[in-house]
Design a protein around this nucleic acid. Structure first.
Lengths: 213, 213
DNA sequence: CCGATATCTTGACGCTGCAAAGATTGCAGA
DNA sequence: TCTGCAATCTTTGCAGCGTCAAGATATCGG
């Protein structure tokens, strides 16, 4: 806990994750190595092994951190958006794309099932929190009540709901991913947010209209 | 050209790319190494250097191959779809998602600007061919005439067209990416294609309606 | 107080990408 | 046909990586 370095670090696991995130920020996924994480944490190169097993273990926990951060961003933006349905959908898109821009390497790792352990409880739980937030945004567009993460799977019995979730989430995710990887050159930096808002609003209205009919 | 091995291979560059694609298929992006490519091509571990410079050069060319393959798939599916606008849009989604399923590692590499050289002429040209195909699908939905890759940038002057492209492409790409990375558990394998068709058709109709108004 | 356990270090192995230098081949011009 | 040059491939070497095994050190329950 203290800043002092002793033989036993005290909180090495978290310190290594902090270091790992710093490495990702500075060097990218390419430059991400266990040894660099250990160096930044001020420990020997084999220290991470005891806490994470292998590099996949570290990336899995970092991905989980990413989902938790994304969930926080979503909730903050949604709180600020109030009760207007269009505003909520745009806030969701904003938070999602904003996260991808702010933490590009996290975003990459979170959606790389070959890089992490998709079975890890911490990761699936964190991802479930995020998906619940996204699902509830769609549910509100459809005039339905919120669900909690425990009921997420049970709530997926409606074909129409799933279709609306796909319409909403795939658009937001596709935009975030393509933009992140530089595949949307026709969207200038200046018009970036406007484009996202316009397209999101159209989809929100479509989902609302479908639900009303 | 011949199957015989001499000191000079004759067509080592293509052979190394073939080997690289085989490595991706068998070992994934994780197991992709220059030395393994060289081993499979039956040459020394430093042979790739002369043709590609470094590993990024190889991945760049493999990504270009991926875009060319995706373009071929798009064209084949579109030809089979005929002139019906809904069918064309669904065929596009089918081809795009089908490619991601058939060549998951290619798909990953193609959209990893940190892994390839995004400036490489061969890659940008191949990607332009793909984007032109996608753009023209949207243009037809809007009742507009096709353009060729050379005029792609010039054709991006219409805000409405760009918005429709985003609506269409982000959905298809987001679906392909999320499905590939195992993030759509609520979409069962059996309903997979149906979901994609349903959501795509809704978007196609929305784009057509917007254009008609 | 002491032994068991958790935590971290040291050392080693094979693998990797990359660079430099050497070997082999094909080819253009005399 | 011969010769020198450029292209192509091999060999060698280096530093860095992930992982494993063994050893050192601190913490904690008895």
């Amino acid at each position: 806990m203290t800043g002092k370095r002793t033989y036993h670090h005290g909180d090495l696991k978290e310190a290594l994750l902090d270091a790992g995130e710093a490495v990702l920020r500075d060097l990218g996924l390419q430059g991400f190595t266990l040894r660099e994480c250990a160096r930044r944490a001020g420990v020997s190169h084999a220290a991470p092994k005891h806490h994470f097993g292998d590099v996949r273990g570290v990336l899995t926990e970092i991905a989980a951190r990413g989902f938790r951060q994304l969930t926080r961003r979503l909730r903050a933006k949604l709180r600020a958006a109030g009760h207007d349905l269009d505003a909520q959908f745009m806030a969701t898109a904003d938070a999602y794309v904003g996260f991808a821009e702010a933490y590009p390497e996290h975003f990459r790792i979170m959606f790389r099932c070959d890089l992490v352990n998709p079975e890890a409880p911490g990761l699936t739980a964190a991802a479930f929190e995020t998906f619940t937030e996204l699902t509830n945004v769609i549910r509100r567009q459809r005039g339905e009540a919120d669900v909690n993460p425990q009921c997420l799977n049970a709530a997926m019995d409606s074909t129409e709901l799933i279709n609306d979730i796909l319409i909403g989430w795939c658009h937001i995710h596709g935009y975030a991913h393509l933009k992140l990887e530089g595949q949307l050159p026709m969207v200038s930096k200046a018009m970036h947010r406007t484009r996202l808002h316009t397209s999101s609003q159209r989809l929100a209205k479509m989902i609302q209209a479908q639900a009303a009919s």
